[in-house]
């Protein structure tokens, strides 16, 4: 029983190291809009999206494609971890302002990502 638990825990810890050295992207929420509204990230890597909400009211990020929901309180920031993702476009929106607060994550190959950056 304890061997099973130990094996399971070690495996989880080994893979937790992958959270280190993660690319980061900052997205600002202002007047219920995302700036930038499109961000480019490399395929096959975990990425940390840092949402900085400059509005006084909260916003809730929602994306079925990214499988993420996250509340970002007013005048606060919140981290959203995504990936590893395949190449493509992944849309997200703010639940409180779905008509204006929209954006997308564009996932490109690591080569293209390095060329652009």
């Amino acid at each position: 029983m304890y061997k099973s638990l130990l094996s399971f825990s070690l495996l989880m810890l080994m893979h937790s190291a992958s959270a280190l050295a993660m690319p980061e992207v900052i997205i600002t929420i202002r007047d219920h809009l995302f700036y930038p509204s499109e961000v480019m990230v490399p395929a096959g890597k975990k990425v940390k999206l840092i949402f900085v909400n400059q509005d006084n009211t909260p916003e809730e990020l929602d994306s079925f494609e990214l499988n993420r929901e996250k509340v970002i309180f007013g005048n606060a920031k919140a981290n959203v971890f995504i990936g590893p993702l395949d190449e493509g476009e992944y849309h997200f929106f703010g639940e409180y302002h779905p008509s204006s607060a929209v954006g997308k994550v564009i996932v490109v190959s690591p080569e293209v990502f390095n060329d652009v950056n």
Partner: peptide, 8 residues
Amino acid sequence: TDQGKYYA
């Protein structure tokens, strides 16, 4: 844990 931060 935060969703997506670690392996699971």
